[in-house]
Design a protein around this nucleic acid. Sequence first.
DNA 1: CAGTGGTCTAGACCACGGT
DNA 2: CCGTGGTCTAGACCACTGA
Lengths: 240, 240
Amino acid sequence: MQFDERLPLYQRLRDDLATKIAERIWKPDEALPSELNLAAQYRVAPGTMRRAIETLVVEGMLERRQGRGTYVRRADFTGSLFRFFRHVEAGGEPVIPKSEILLRKEQPAGKDVAAKLAIAAGDSVIYLKRRRLIEGAALLVEEIWLPKRPFARLLKIPVEDYGDLLYPLYERECHCSIARAEEFLSVDLAQTALARQLNIKVGEPVVVVERLAFGFDGRPLEWRRSRGRAKQFHYKVEIR
Amino acid sequence: MQFDERLPLYQRLRDDLATKIAERIWKPDEALPSELNLAAQYRVAPGTMRRAIETLVVEGMLERRQGRGTYVRRADFTGSLFRFFRHVEAGGEPVIPKSEILLRKEQPAGKDVAAKLAIAAGDSVIYLKRRRLIEGAALLVEEIWLPKRPFARLLKIPVEDYGDLLYPLYERECHCSIARAEEFLSVDLAQTALARQLNIKVGEPVVVVERLAFGFDGRPLEWRRSRGRAKQFHYKVEIR
DNA sequence: CAGTGGTCTAGACCACGGT
DNA sequence: CCGTGGTCTAGACCACTGA
């Protein structure tokens, strides 16, 4: 508990718990000690510990399950891009699109990628290009940049073994959990190569979703650019 | 406090406070009685009242000001569309675009509009069409539908007196405060008329922002469709 | 059944804002 | 200075979960 003394106690507790989660002292899908137990350990009132936990629940780092315990939450992105891109829903249940890795290589980071990933320009990054399909129809084309540091193992695994979802792969092979992300939306016009890959006409509008994904320690782990047909784009926002 | 007995007390308190706000017993920008005062009135513990208030703060209905009191919050949408559409920022401070009412008329609600506004098809609605400009350049074209019931007065005011923002107008003239809204984004191609109004080419992509705005009682008050150049579109989302 | 989080109470003291 | 919300404590009892 070597955090800034001026901060409220529940904030310092929150930071300490967050650090423990980032250090994987408690792992995703694992229960923390009970509230009373933690309060006793830290010698604070149960209500204060409760508030610290509550904060992390709101931030999405923890999850409470009544009668069972408090668990480290792993971000679930399976529905994320599909909040943006409408696709045929077979009965309403979420379908995970097939993934086709088109390219994998190691390369030095360009200036923009380096800035996004908070590394030095020229540092090694892993570049992936993949296509995602639903029932054989191209939905998205994605480009992905990962810092080599924690992801080197991905270069040694055959791309056929990657599977359809990358984040479980990162966690399984590289012990990197994605905690949250920022996404940026914009609209562009399809160039020749992209049009061919998405099976649309050159010049048709495409929606670009750029995503910067962070670990529990708040450091950027992945930069991703996905493109899909604007026709299938739809999105809902709450405004207050 | 005639709410469902099975609900937690703080929930029932929240509902009761929300009703009072909807009934304009406390008006926007007005301070509520203090927490201790309210707790005493309702004969509950201060902590419980605090939690009820906290809930409404999170929901955006109330706003706390340390040392001053708790205030009814009015939604502020001045920056809303401009989170989507980038425009020339003169020095960074938010600019309110000029508003040009192109059309105002009373008409029977079509099926879709009626569904959005939760009224019967054929009921009278007010239809507005306006253009919004920044430094003379067309930014957006908007279509707006309002139920005649609380908004009839708008038909009697010269459109020149509407001003650049509609929500203050609604509040001033019709005693209708907008509490929150849902926005839906999609991409379309500009038709002839729209292209002319936005000063772009026919077939250029445009972003469509459809907004359903609600009052404090949760009832839909306004349905709006705004269209702007996709080139200027950009948006950021947080994912967890 | 024992153990967990969920609700609720009843205070104390502090920091801030306006008079 | 007083009144406000912000923090923190120290309990009690309930509802849910899994063994």
